[in-house]
């Protein structure tokens, strides 16, 4: 589906900045503080963790060099971290060269993930991760 370049890039830039500020805030004040300041609506309302709860702690553990601990907190954190590392250079490249390589990649990725088989596998993985999160009591 057609998403406009400007719109997509604006969303990505905003989320990248917010993400970096959030990670910085958590690095400075530690996990326990971040746990108290959880933004997760679901956990705050129902006390049940959502599928991506713990990804901040995963990112922080990875930055501290504790790979296994970060996998334990939430494997999604590693996906988020890699996206956060890859995005800024890519965005700068696209803006500098006036290309749409990121938008093209986004559209291709969307087309792949919407295939029935891929989607089912992804949904099952997310659900398993969610069950694991609830079991861990994040």
């Amino acid at each position: 589906m057609a998403i406009v370049r400007k719109q997509l890039y604006r969303i990505l830039i905003t989320s990248c900045i917010v993400g970096y500020v959030w990670v910085y805030f958590n690095l400075k004040f530690g996990y326990s503080e971040s746990y108290k300041h959880s933004f997760c609506l679901m956990k705050n309302i129902t006390n049940v963790p959502c599928p991506s709860c713990g990804s901040t702690r995963a990112v922080i553990s990875f930055i501290h060099g504790d790979f296994l601990q970060s996998l334990y907190w939430n494997p999604m954190g590693l996906i988020i971290l890699s996206i956060m590392i890859v995005l800024p250079p890519w965005l700068i490249y696209d803006y500098a060269t006036r290309k749409e390589s990121l938008l093209n990649f986004y559209s291709k990725f969307e087309a792949i993930i919407r295939r029935r088989r891929v989607a089912i596998v992804a949904i099952v993985l997310v659900l398993l991760n969610w069950i694991w999160n609830i079991y861990k009591g994040l």
Partner: peptide, 26 residues
Amino acid sequence: HLGIDRFVIGDTGLGIAKLLTCGGLG
């Protein structure tokens, strides 16, 4: 919060973004 609204209207990419980031930190 899980990005289901975005998935339903066909914005799969943004739905995944929302799912990964805890609904964009809520």
